[in-house]
Design a protein around this nucleic acid. Structure first.
Length: 421
RNA sequence: GGCGGGUUGCCCGAGCGGCCAAUGGGAGGGGACUGUAAAUCCCCCGGCUUAUGCCUUCGAAGGUUCAAAUCCUUCACCCGCCA
Protein backbone atom coordinates (compact mmCIF):
# COMPACT_ATOMS: atom_id res chain seq x y z
CA UNK A 1 0.00 0.00 0.00
CA UNK A 2 1.47 3.32 -0.97
CA UNK A 3 1.37 6.54 0.98
CA UNK A 4 -1.50 8.07 -0.94
CA UNK A 5 -3.63 4.97 -0.52
CA UNK A 6 -2.89 4.96 3.16
CA UNK A 7 -3.88 8.62 3.46
CA UNK A 8 -7.05 7.88 1.61
CA UNK A 9 -7.83 5.02 3.96
CA UNK A 10 -7.34 7.33 6.91
CA UNK A 11 -9.79 9.76 5.41
CA UNK A 12 -7.10 12.36 4.94
CA UNK A 13 -7.65 13.18 1.31
CA UNK A 14 -10.22 15.78 0.38
CA UNK A 15 -9.07 16.98 -2.99
CA UNK A 16 -5.98 16.64 -5.06
CA UNK A 17 -4.73 17.56 -8.45
CA UNK A 18 -4.43 14.56 -10.73
CA UNK A 19 -4.20 11.79 -8.14
CA UNK A 20 -2.59 9.33 -10.52
CA UNK A 21 0.19 11.73 -11.32
CA UNK A 22 0.61 12.44 -7.65
CA UNK A 23 0.74 8.76 -6.75
CA UNK A 24 3.34 8.36 -9.46
CA UNK A 25 5.35 11.34 -8.22
CA UNK A 26 5.55 10.13 -4.63
CA UNK A 27 7.21 6.92 -5.70
CA UNK A 28 10.38 8.96 -5.58
CA UNK A 29 11.19 11.34 -2.74
CA UNK A 30 9.66 14.73 -3.34
CA UNK A 31 9.70 17.98 -1.42
CA UNK A 32 6.45 19.21 0.01
CA UNK A 33 5.26 21.95 2.31
CA UNK A 34 2.47 22.96 4.62
CA UNK A 35 1.98 26.46 5.93
CA UNK A 36 0.92 27.47 9.43
CA UNK A 37 -0.09 31.03 10.08
CA UNK A 38 0.47 32.46 13.53
CA UNK A 39 -3.08 33.25 14.56
CA UNK A 40 -2.55 32.36 18.22
CA UNK A 41 0.35 31.81 20.59
CA UNK A 42 0.17 28.07 20.05
CA UNK A 43 -0.91 25.44 17.58
CA UNK A 44 -4.02 23.47 18.50
CA UNK A 45 -5.27 19.96 17.87
CA UNK A 46 -6.87 21.10 14.64
CA UNK A 47 -3.46 22.00 13.25
CA UNK A 48 -2.26 18.59 14.30
CA UNK A 49 -4.27 16.87 11.57
CA UNK A 50 -2.28 18.43 8.79
CA UNK A 51 0.97 18.53 10.69
CA UNK A 52 0.86 14.79 11.16
CA UNK A 53 0.30 14.35 7.45
CA UNK A 54 3.57 16.17 6.95
CA UNK A 55 5.17 13.75 9.36
CA UNK A 56 3.69 10.82 7.48
CA UNK A 57 5.34 12.09 4.34
CA UNK A 58 8.67 12.40 6.06
CA UNK A 59 8.39 8.90 7.48
CA UNK A 60 7.73 7.72 3.93
CA UNK A 61 11.00 9.26 2.82
CA UNK A 62 9.94 12.65 1.51
CA UNK A 63 11.40 16.05 2.30
CA UNK A 64 9.03 18.04 4.48
CA UNK A 65 9.01 21.81 4.82
CA UNK A 66 6.97 23.46 7.52
CA UNK A 67 6.33 27.07 6.70
CA UNK A 68 5.52 29.55 9.42
CA UNK A 69 3.52 32.43 8.09
CA UNK A 70 5.38 35.37 9.56
CA UNK A 71 4.21 37.40 6.58
CA UNK A 72 0.83 35.89 5.81
CA UNK A 73 -0.04 36.01 9.51
CA UNK A 74 0.30 39.76 9.36
CA UNK A 75 -2.22 39.92 6.53
CA UNK A 76 -4.87 37.39 7.52
CA UNK A 77 -6.38 34.56 5.55
CA UNK A 78 -10.03 35.13 4.63
CA UNK A 79 -10.58 31.39 4.06
CA UNK A 80 -13.27 29.84 6.17
CA UNK A 81 -14.20 33.07 7.89
CA UNK A 82 -17.14 35.31 7.34
CA UNK A 83 -15.67 38.38 8.89
CA UNK A 84 -12.50 40.37 8.68
CA UNK A 85 -9.73 39.49 11.11
CA UNK A 86 -8.46 42.04 13.56
CA UNK A 87 -4.88 42.75 12.78
CA UNK A 88 -2.31 41.93 15.41
CA UNK A 89 0.82 43.97 15.92
CA UNK A 90 4.12 42.92 14.43
CA UNK A 91 5.53 42.20 17.87
CA UNK A 92 2.70 39.91 18.78
CA UNK A 93 2.96 37.97 15.53
CA UNK A 94 6.68 37.75 15.88
CA UNK A 95 6.29 36.21 19.31
CA UNK A 96 3.77 33.71 18.03
CA UNK A 97 6.02 32.78 15.14
CA UNK A 98 8.79 31.90 17.55
CA UNK A 99 6.54 29.71 19.66
CA UNK A 100 4.99 27.92 16.72
CA UNK A 101 8.36 27.28 15.17
CA UNK A 102 9.42 25.41 18.26
CA UNK A 103 6.20 23.43 18.37
CA UNK A 104 6.46 22.44 14.74
CA UNK A 105 9.97 21.18 15.15
CA UNK A 106 8.86 18.61 17.71
CA UNK A 107 7.01 16.70 15.02
CA UNK A 108 9.67 16.58 12.39
CA UNK A 109 13.09 15.05 12.13
CA UNK A 110 15.93 17.45 11.40
CA UNK A 111 18.74 15.06 12.12
CA UNK A 112 18.20 12.43 9.52
CA UNK A 113 20.73 12.48 6.72
CA UNK A 114 18.49 11.48 3.90
CA UNK A 115 15.47 13.71 4.14
CA UNK A 116 15.82 16.22 6.96
CA UNK A 117 12.95 18.56 7.62
CA UNK A 118 13.11 22.27 7.07
CA UNK A 119 11.31 25.13 8.73
CA UNK A 120 11.00 28.38 6.84
CA UNK A 121 9.34 31.71 7.42
CA UNK A 122 7.72 33.45 4.49
CA UNK A 123 8.63 36.81 5.95
CA UNK A 124 12.18 36.06 4.77
CA UNK A 125 11.31 36.46 1.12
CA UNK A 126 8.28 38.67 1.44
CA UNK A 127 9.65 41.53 3.45
CA UNK A 128 12.50 42.42 1.03
CA UNK A 129 9.95 42.72 -1.75
CA UNK A 130 8.99 46.25 -2.77
CA UNK A 131 5.43 47.16 -3.57
CA UNK A 132 6.31 47.88 -7.16
CA UNK A 133 8.07 44.54 -7.60
CA UNK A 134 5.16 42.83 -6.01
CA UNK A 135 2.64 44.44 -8.32
CA UNK A 136 4.69 44.05 -11.49
CA UNK A 137 6.34 40.67 -11.02
CA UNK A 138 3.66 38.83 -9.15
CA UNK A 139 0.43 40.77 -9.35
CA UNK A 140 0.55 40.81 -13.11
CA UNK A 141 -0.03 37.07 -13.18
CA UNK A 142 -3.27 37.26 -11.26
CA UNK A 143 -6.65 37.92 -12.75
CA UNK A 144 -9.01 39.72 -10.43
CA UNK A 145 -11.86 37.85 -12.03
CA UNK A 146 -10.39 34.57 -10.89
CA UNK A 147 -9.50 35.91 -7.51
CA UNK A 148 -13.07 37.03 -6.98
CA UNK A 149 -14.33 33.60 -7.92
CA UNK A 150 -12.46 31.88 -5.08
CA UNK A 151 -14.79 30.52 -2.44
CA UNK A 152 -13.02 32.36 0.32
CA UNK A 153 -13.52 35.69 -1.41
CA UNK A 154 -16.95 35.02 -2.87
CA UNK A 155 -18.28 34.02 0.52
CA UNK A 156 -17.00 37.20 2.02
CA UNK A 157 -18.52 39.33 -0.69
CA UNK A 158 -21.80 37.69 0.28
CA UNK A 159 -21.43 38.28 3.99
CA UNK A 160 -19.39 41.02 5.53
CA UNK A 161 -17.27 42.24 2.67
CA UNK A 162 -13.52 41.95 2.45
CA UNK A 163 -10.64 44.36 2.70
CA UNK A 164 -7.97 44.73 0.06
CA UNK A 165 -5.55 43.33 2.63
CA UNK A 166 -7.25 39.98 3.00
CA UNK A 167 -8.19 39.91 -0.65
CA UNK A 168 -4.47 39.88 -1.40
CA UNK A 169 -3.82 36.90 0.81
CA UNK A 170 -4.04 34.34 -1.97
CA UNK A 171 -1.37 36.20 -3.89
CA UNK A 172 1.02 35.99 -0.99
CA UNK A 173 0.41 32.32 -0.44
CA UNK A 174 0.84 31.65 -4.14
CA UNK A 175 4.12 33.48 -4.03
CA UNK A 176 5.25 31.27 -1.15
CA UNK A 177 4.64 28.20 -3.21
CA UNK A 178 6.49 29.68 -6.16
CA UNK A 179 9.39 30.61 -3.95
CA UNK A 180 9.66 27.15 -2.44
CA UNK A 181 9.33 25.63 -5.89
CA UNK A 182 12.31 27.67 -7.01
CA UNK A 183 14.47 27.33 -3.94
CA UNK A 184 13.75 23.79 -2.89
CA UNK A 185 12.08 22.18 -5.86
CA UNK A 186 9.02 21.87 -3.72
CA UNK A 187 6.30 20.28 -5.84
CA UNK A 188 3.52 19.54 -3.41
CA UNK A 189 1.57 21.76 -1.09
CA UNK A 190 -0.79 20.30 1.43
CA UNK A 191 -3.37 22.15 3.46
CA UNK A 192 -6.80 22.00 4.99
CA UNK A 193 -9.63 21.77 2.49
CA UNK A 194 -10.33 25.48 2.95
CA UNK A 195 -6.89 26.07 1.46
CA UNK A 196 -7.70 24.56 -1.92
CA UNK A 197 -8.25 27.90 -3.60
CA UNK A 198 -5.04 29.37 -2.27
CA UNK A 199 -3.00 26.32 -3.19
CA UNK A 200 -4.38 26.11 -6.69
CA UNK A 201 -3.64 29.78 -7.19
CA UNK A 202 -0.04 28.90 -6.40
CA UNK A 203 -0.02 26.16 -8.99
CA UNK A 204 -1.19 28.64 -11.60
CA UNK A 205 1.53 31.04 -10.65
CA UNK A 206 4.20 28.35 -10.89
CA UNK A 207 2.92 27.32 -14.28
CA UNK A 208 2.87 30.88 -15.58
CA UNK A 209 6.20 32.01 -14.25
CA UNK A 210 8.28 28.87 -14.34
CA UNK A 211 6.24 26.70 -16.65
CA UNK A 212 6.53 24.29 -13.79
CA UNK A 213 4.27 21.49 -12.76
CA UNK A 214 3.38 21.02 -9.11
CA UNK A 215 0.69 19.31 -7.06
CA UNK A 216 -1.94 20.15 -4.52
CA UNK A 217 -3.46 17.96 -1.85
CA UNK A 218 -6.00 18.99 0.72
CA UNK A 219 -7.05 17.32 3.92
CA UNK A 220 -10.73 17.36 4.91
CA UNK A 221 -11.84 19.57 7.70
CA UNK A 222 -12.19 17.18 10.59
CA UNK A 223 -15.61 17.14 12.15
CA UNK A 224 -17.13 15.03 14.86
CA UNK A 225 -19.80 12.50 14.11
CA UNK A 226 -22.51 14.95 15.05
CA UNK A 227 -21.12 17.45 12.58
CA UNK A 228 -19.79 19.81 15.20
CA UNK A 229 -16.37 21.31 15.08
CA UNK A 230 -13.52 19.16 16.22
CA UNK A 231 -11.17 20.36 18.92
CA UNK A 232 -13.40 22.83 20.69
CA UNK A 233 -14.48 22.16 24.22
CA UNK A 234 -16.01 24.08 27.05
CA UNK A 235 -12.72 25.71 27.80
CA UNK A 236 -12.17 26.63 24.18
CA UNK A 237 -9.48 25.20 21.97
CA UNK A 238 -7.29 22.29 22.87
CA UNK A 239 -3.79 23.71 22.54
CA UNK A 240 -0.52 21.92 22.11
CA UNK A 241 1.18 24.32 24.51
CA UNK A 242 1.19 22.63 27.95
CA UNK A 243 0.74 25.95 29.72
CA UNK A 244 -2.43 26.63 27.74
CA UNK A 245 -3.90 23.12 27.88
CA UNK A 246 -2.36 20.97 30.58
CA UNK A 247 -1.18 17.52 29.54
CA UNK A 248 -3.78 16.15 31.94
CA UNK A 249 -6.58 18.02 30.19
CA UNK A 250 -5.09 17.05 26.86
CA UNK A 251 -5.16 13.37 27.74
CA UNK A 252 -8.71 13.69 29.04
CA UNK A 253 -9.79 15.36 25.84
CA UNK A 254 -8.87 12.30 23.82
CA UNK A 255 -10.07 9.84 26.41
CA UNK A 256 -13.48 11.49 26.38
CA UNK A 257 -13.90 11.21 22.62
CA UNK A 258 -17.27 9.95 21.57
CA UNK A 259 -17.47 6.31 20.59
CA UNK A 260 -18.51 7.18 17.09
CA UNK A 261 -15.40 9.25 16.60
CA UNK A 262 -12.71 7.24 18.23
CA UNK A 263 -11.76 4.95 15.36
CA UNK A 264 -11.72 7.82 12.98
CA UNK A 265 -9.48 9.77 15.35
CA UNK A 266 -7.12 6.84 15.55
CA UNK A 267 -6.80 6.87 11.80
CA UNK A 268 -6.13 10.57 11.70
CA UNK A 269 -3.97 11.11 14.77
CA UNK A 270 -2.15 7.86 15.38
CA UNK A 271 0.57 6.13 13.47
CA UNK A 272 -0.86 2.73 14.12
CA UNK A 273 -1.15 0.41 11.19
CA UNK A 274 -4.42 -0.52 9.58
CA UNK A 275 -4.23 -3.92 11.26
CA UNK A 276 -3.72 -2.41 14.69
CA UNK A 277 -6.58 -0.04 14.22
CA UNK A 278 -8.97 -2.70 13.05
CA UNK A 279 -7.96 -4.76 16.09
CA UNK A 280 -8.95 -1.84 18.29
CA UNK A 281 -12.14 -1.41 16.35
CA UNK A 282 -12.98 -5.01 17.05
CA UNK A 283 -12.22 -4.83 20.74
CA UNK A 284 -14.21 -1.63 21.02
CA UNK A 285 -17.20 -3.22 19.33
CA UNK A 286 -17.03 -6.14 21.73
CA UNK A 287 -16.67 -4.13 24.88
CA UNK A 288 -17.14 -0.43 24.44
CA UNK A 289 -17.21 0.12 28.18
CA UNK A 290 -13.58 -0.80 28.42
CA UNK A 291 -12.69 2.01 26.08
CA UNK A 292 -9.57 0.34 24.89
CA UNK A 293 -9.50 2.39 21.71
CA UNK A 294 -9.94 5.64 23.62
CA UNK A 295 -7.07 4.78 25.90
CA UNK A 296 -4.75 3.92 23.06
CA UNK A 297 -5.67 7.11 21.29
CA UNK A 298 -5.12 9.29 24.35
CA UNK A 299 -1.83 7.59 25.13
CA UNK A 300 -0.41 7.87 21.68
CA UNK A 301 -1.36 11.44 20.97
CA UNK A 302 -0.33 12.65 24.42
CA UNK A 303 3.00 10.89 24.04
CA UNK A 304 3.49 12.46 20.66
CA UNK A 305 2.74 15.97 21.87
CA UNK A 306 3.94 16.00 25.47
CA UNK A 307 6.34 13.11 25.63
CA UNK A 308 6.23 9.63 27.09
CA UNK A 309 6.88 10.73 30.67
CA UNK A 310 4.06 13.21 30.74
CA UNK A 311 1.72 10.71 29.15
CA UNK A 312 2.43 8.11 31.80
CA UNK A 313 2.12 10.69 34.56
CA UNK A 314 -1.24 12.02 33.52
CA UNK A 315 -2.69 8.62 32.87
CA UNK A 316 -1.76 7.34 36.29
CA UNK A 317 -3.03 10.56 37.83
CA UNK A 318 -6.38 9.94 36.23
CA UNK A 319 -6.33 6.35 37.36
CA UNK A 320 -5.62 7.33 40.94
CA UNK A 321 -8.27 10.01 41.14
CA UNK A 322 -11.06 8.66 39.01
CA UNK A 323 -13.84 6.43 40.06
CA UNK A 324 -12.00 5.23 43.15
CA UNK A 325 -14.46 6.29 45.78
CA UNK A 326 -11.97 6.21 48.58
CA UNK A 327 -9.21 8.69 48.08
CA UNK A 328 -7.93 8.13 51.59
CA UNK A 329 -6.59 4.80 50.39
CA UNK A 330 -3.97 6.53 48.30
CA UNK A 331 -0.51 6.92 49.70
CA UNK A 332 0.99 10.35 49.82
CA UNK A 333 3.47 10.11 46.91
CA UNK A 334 0.80 8.77 44.57
CA UNK A 335 -1.64 11.41 45.66
CA UNK A 336 0.89 14.22 45.41
CA UNK A 337 2.00 13.32 41.93
CA UNK A 338 -1.56 12.85 40.72
CA UNK A 339 -2.65 16.19 42.08
CA UNK A 340 0.32 17.86 40.48
CA UNK A 341 -1.37 17.40 37.12
CA UNK A 342 -4.55 19.23 38.10
CA UNK A 343 -5.53 22.86 38.24
CA UNK A 344 -4.76 23.85 41.76
CA UNK A 345 -4.80 26.42 44.48
CA UNK A 346 -2.87 26.65 47.70
CA UNK A 347 -3.75 27.96 51.11
CA UNK A 348 -1.45 28.75 53.93
CA UNK A 349 -1.21 26.69 57.09
CA UNK A 350 -2.26 29.54 59.35
CA UNK A 351 -5.08 30.72 57.23
CA UNK A 352 -8.67 29.89 57.94
CA UNK A 353 -9.88 27.40 55.35
CA UNK A 354 -12.11 29.05 52.76
CA UNK A 355 -15.41 27.60 51.67
CA UNK A 356 -15.66 24.98 48.95
CA UNK A 357 -17.06 27.65 46.66
CA UNK A 358 -14.13 29.96 47.21
CA UNK A 359 -11.63 27.16 46.79
CA UNK A 360 -13.09 26.00 43.52
CA UNK A 361 -13.21 29.52 42.18
CA UNK A 362 -9.58 29.95 43.18
CA UNK A 363 -8.52 26.97 41.08
CA UNK A 364 -9.99 28.57 37.99
CA UNK A 365 -12.19 25.59 37.18
CA UNK A 366 -15.21 27.88 37.24
CA UNK A 367 -15.38 31.44 36.09
CA UNK A 368 -17.00 32.95 39.14
CA UNK A 369 -18.13 32.22 42.63
CA UNK A 370 -21.69 32.40 41.43
CA UNK A 371 -20.94 29.57 39.05
CA UNK A 372 -19.39 27.57 41.88
CA UNK A 373 -22.47 28.19 44.04
CA UNK A 374 -24.69 26.99 41.26
CA UNK A 375 -22.70 23.79 41.08
CA UNK A 376 -23.26 23.20 44.79
CA UNK A 377 -26.93 23.99 44.50
CA UNK A 378 -27.34 21.63 41.54
CA UNK A 379 -25.60 18.80 43.35
CA UNK A 380 -22.41 18.62 41.35
CA UNK A 381 -19.99 19.58 44.06
CA UNK A 382 -17.62 17.11 45.69
CA UNK A 383 -14.82 17.23 48.18
CA UNK A 384 -12.65 14.11 48.13
CA UNK A 385 -15.46 12.35 46.30
CA UNK A 386 -18.07 13.23 48.95
CA UNK A 387 -20.90 15.40 47.77
CA UNK A 388 -20.99 18.89 49.21
CA UNK A 389 -24.51 20.10 49.79
CA UNK A 390 -24.29 23.34 51.68
CA UNK A 391 -23.33 26.47 49.80
CA UNK A 392 -21.36 27.73 52.78
CA UNK A 393 -19.57 24.49 53.47
CA UNK A 394 -15.93 24.93 54.40
CA UNK A 395 -13.82 21.83 54.82
CA UNK A 396 -12.10 21.29 58.14
CA UNK A 397 -8.44 20.53 58.48
CA UNK A 398 -9.13 16.93 59.33
CA UNK A 399 -10.71 16.39 55.96
CA UNK A 400 -7.48 17.09 54.16
CA UNK A 401 -5.83 13.95 52.87
CA UNK A 402 -2.44 13.30 54.38
CA UNK A 403 -3.07 16.47 56.31
CA UNK A 404 -2.53 18.72 53.32
CA UNK A 405 -4.43 17.79 50.17
CA UNK A 406 -8.01 18.10 49.09
CA UNK A 407 -9.56 17.04 45.80
CA UNK A 408 -12.34 19.26 44.51
CA UNK A 409 -14.64 17.92 41.89
CA UNK A 410 -17.20 19.71 39.77
CA UNK A 411 -19.59 17.39 38.04
CA UNK A 412 -18.41 14.02 36.90
CA UNK A 413 -14.96 14.70 35.68
CA UNK A 414 -13.70 18.15 36.41
CA UNK A 415 -11.06 17.85 39.10
CA UNK A 416 -8.95 20.37 40.93
CA UNK A 417 -6.56 20.25 43.84
CA UNK A 418 -6.07 22.23 47.03
CA UNK A 419 -2.83 22.06 48.94
CA UNK A 420 -2.04 23.45 52.37
CA UNK A 421 1.44 24.88 52.49
C1' G B 1 -19.38 62.96 -0.32
C1' G B 2 -25.16 62.00 -0.23
C1' C B 3 -29.31 58.92 1.23
C1' G B 4 -31.05 54.62 3.78
C1' G B 5 -30.30 50.32 7.19
C1' G B 6 -27.61 48.45 11.27
C1' U B 7 -24.35 47.80 16.17
C1' U B 8 -28.26 43.76 22.27
C1' G B 9 -25.35 38.91 26.93
C1' C B 10 -20.29 33.22 24.43
C1' C B 11 -22.99 33.07 19.19
C1' C B 12 -27.62 33.98 16.47
C1' G B 13 -31.56 36.98 17.53
C1' A B 14 -36.32 39.47 19.94
C1' G B 15 -37.41 43.90 22.61
C1' C B 16 -38.43 49.93 20.54
C1' G B 17 -40.04 54.74 27.42
C1' G B 18 -41.72 51.67 33.23
C1' C B 19 -43.92 44.73 34.25
C1' C B 20 -35.86 44.27 31.56
C1' A B 21 -30.37 41.27 33.88
C1' A B 22 -33.52 41.84 29.14
C1' U B 23 -38.35 36.55 25.02
C1' G B 24 -36.49 32.49 21.99
C1' G B 25 -32.77 29.22 19.82
C1' G B 26 -27.76 27.34 19.81
C1' A B 27 -23.40 26.59 22.60
C1' G B 28 -22.11 25.75 27.73
C1' G B 29 -22.76 23.88 33.08
C1' G B 30 -25.24 20.39 36.83
C1' G B 31 -28.40 16.08 37.85
C1' A B 32 -30.84 11.25 36.61
C1' C B 33 -29.53 6.94 33.39
C1' U B 34 -24.51 5.02 31.91
C1' G B 35 -18.87 3.23 30.44
C1' U B 36 -14.84 9.66 32.54
C1' A B 37 -19.46 7.45 25.54
C1' A B 38 -23.99 8.75 22.96
C1' A B 39 -29.26 9.43 23.06
C1' U B 40 -33.15 10.95 26.40
C1' C B 41 -35.52 13.62 30.42
C1' C B 42 -35.18 17.51 34.41
C1' C B 43 -32.72 21.94 36.27
C1' C B 44 -29.32 26.13 35.61
C1' C B 45 -26.87 29.77 32.70
C1' G B 46 -24.06 38.65 34.08
C1' G B 47 -21.39 39.61 38.80
C1' C B 48 -21.22 40.29 44.20
C1' U B 49 -20.00 39.01 51.23
C1' U B 50 -27.36 34.77 48.60
C1' A B 51 -29.65 39.28 49.26
C1' U B 52 -38.29 40.30 48.46
C1' G B 53 -30.55 43.53 48.34
C1' C B 54 -26.61 45.84 45.64
C1' C B 55 -23.49 46.53 41.23
C1' U B 56 -22.35 46.30 35.94
C1' U B 57 -24.40 45.28 30.95
C1' C B 58 -27.98 46.40 25.24
C1' G B 59 -21.29 50.19 19.93
C1' A B 60 -19.05 55.14 22.74
C1' A B 61 -19.92 59.84 25.05
C1' G B 62 -23.42 63.34 26.45
C1' G B 63 -28.72 64.87 27.05
C1' U B 64 -34.37 64.61 27.90
C1' U B 65 -37.41 62.07 31.81
C1' C B 66 -39.60 60.50 38.30
C1' A B 67 -37.96 56.33 34.87
C1' A B 68 -34.03 54.79 28.74
C1' A B 69 -31.70 48.80 25.48
C1' U B 70 -35.97 51.71 24.02
C1' C B 71 -36.47 59.19 22.78
C1' C B 72 -32.72 63.33 21.27
C1' U B 73 -27.48 64.96 19.98
C1' U B 74 -22.55 63.97 18.63
C1' C B 75 -18.84 60.33 17.53
C1' A B 76 -16.97 55.36 15.89
C1' C B 77 -17.58 51.04 13.09
C1' C B 78 -20.40 47.78 9.58
C1' C B 79 -23.89 47.02 5.38
C1' G B 80 -26.70 48.67 0.97
C1' C B 81 -27.81 52.18 -2.93
C1' C B 82 -26.17 56.61 -5.39
C1' A B 83 -21.88 59.89 -6.63
Amino acid sequence: MNLIQDLRWRGLVAQSTDEKALAEAVKKPITLYIGFDPTAPSLHVGNLVVLLVLRRFQLAGHNPIALVGGATGLVGDPSGRNDERTLNSNDVIEGWVKGIRIQLSAFLDFETRVNPALIVNNLDWTSPLSVIEFLRDIGKHFSVNQMLAKDSVAARLESGGISYTEFSYQVLQSYDYLELFRRNSCTLQIGGSDQWGNIVAGLDLIRRVESGNAHALTVPLLTKSDGSKFGKTAGGNIWLDPTMTSPYAFFQFWLNSEDKDVINFLKVFSFKSQEQISELEKSHAQNPGLRQAHRELAREVTTLVHGADAAVRVESAAQALFGQGDLTALDEPTLASALAELPRTTISKNQEIPSWVDLLAATGVVESKSAARRVVRDGGAYLNNERVTSPDYAPSKSEFLCGKYAVLRKGKRDLAAVEII
